[in-house]
Design a binder for these strands. Structure first.
Lengths: 244, 244
DNA sequence: CGCACAATTGACAGGTGTCAAACATAGTGG
DNA sequence: CCACTATGTTTGACACCTGTCAATTGTGCG
């Protein structure tokens, strides 16, 4: 019964009002006028998620774009040995999925929900239409994609065969930016990621993550609890991320 | 005297005719009508490069976009210990640099020429103007950026603490796509990169690159010479890149 | 011809993955 | 409400890969 109520709650959170508010708040739709937002809203629908739900799989045709209203998801791939490689974490406001317009013929990774939540679903044709009719929207998409590109390039540098401390610190600071407000990174990270997920994001193993966190905690750099991490000394973590 | 002549040759190659042809051939400007291309051409200028030339440095304000007409460049950063981390190689048709429109306030890396060559230079305002007036151009930019993003994400996976063989194979196959024709990857890579550069692109050391190449050569996977590498068994390299 | 630089090869130590086992916790069902 | 179980976390031991350092060889360029 308890789960039923919570599911219903989640469904209720996907009401039209929340959808419009979500659209307006998402950086992808920033600057669009109300009429345009209404048109978009009319042409998208909502979708509820539960932990473990697969939104789409790698290789499936990319014909939908998703905007996270509530909840968290991870984008991942499987390597040859079946292990997960987590590319990114999606939080409210993030968008995922793909469209031919973006050069995606097929999804490049799996998308899996980490929590209960709600997604807005946009068909590729709708996305294309907006890109063509709304220059502001096209610019938003271009800017956001460029930012993600730079983020990925920075990650490449950090992951390139450096000490685990460097890799983990980089991942944590990335997440802090993602989870924080627009102006300041978050100090306390509420994330649905397990240490195994953090390991998959940092290119290492759960054991190394555990050991590194333990060492950091002893040094007072972080505090940990169930489902959260607090960055107590961001400067020190930034130094580690830079390889010092 | 010989260098003087070659420099003059390079300068000659930056003539208006070549510039227009280059614009038309670059995927960034694909689909633009002749009038638009003329307008772009009128508002950009050419620039010659010599090996080692620094086009821009990390941290400088991003106010120009560059399109490679001839020659090769590398995009790199320096880590804490001063070592180079090479992000990418740019060949004719590639574009580099940045603009506020793309979310760049400052360049995220250094750009250094590897060879004699010629670049077309586009001021940020010009770029912005085209984005706003030419939907096709905006879509091109969006598609190309998305492709680079996916490329970077794949690289993240490959570099995430995997055997050097995997990392090197991934780098080589990336370069093969970059250097090859539109439909087929190149079999023989003519590149101005030293083994140190390849190491910096793969997140490893020149010594490991040398050892790995030697082993591959013994197994008949590649053949090498001065300034070129031939991929003799792409399937085997692809397997290595996948971690098998 | 000799110099500077790139590439090669070897020896060695250190970091990290792997495997294994003990432990904690939350969600489950009785 | 409590035991039970699955899952995530922690800790330890060990081997292996790879970076580092060093010396040698090879190559293009002046």
């Amino acid at each position: 019964m308890a789960t039923l109520v919570s599911t219903a709650d989640q469904a209720a959170m996907c009401g039209v009002d929340v959808r419009l508010a979500m659209l307006a708040r998402s950086p992808l739709f920033a600057g669009l006028d109300d009429a345009a937002l209404e048109r978009v809203n009319d042409r998208c629908h909502a979708m509820a998620t539960a932990p473990g739900d697969v939104v789409y799989r790698k290789g499936e045709p990319a014909e939908r774009l998703y905007v996270v209203a509530t909840g968290q998801l991870k984008l991942l791939e499987h390597d040859a040995s079946g292990g997960e490689v987590v590319h990114d974490l999606c939080v409210p406001g993030s968008f995922l999925g793909g469209a031919p317009t973006l050069g995606d013929v097929a999804h490049a990774h799996d998308a899996r929900a980490l929590t209960h939540g709600c997604l807005l679903v946009l068909a590729a044709e709708v996305f294309e239409g907006i890109v063509r009719s709304e220059p502001t929207f096209a610019l938003n998409a271009l800017t956001l994609t460029s930012q993600r590109l730079r983020d990925a390039e920075r990650t490449v540098q950090a992951l390139s065969r450096r000490p685990v401390e460097t890799q983990l610190a980089t991942t944590l600071l990335r997440l802090a930016v993602r989870l924080g407000s627009t102006d300041a990174p978050a100090r306390r990270l509420e994330l649905a990621l397990s240490q195994a997920d953090l390991a998959a994001m940092s290119g290492t193993t759960p054991e190394s993550v555990s050991r590194t966190f333990a060492a950091w905690q002893r040094r007072g750099l972080v505090a940990r609890g169930r489902g959260w991490i607090e960055l107590k000394d961001r400067a020190a973590l930034a130094d580690l991320a830079e390889g010092r």
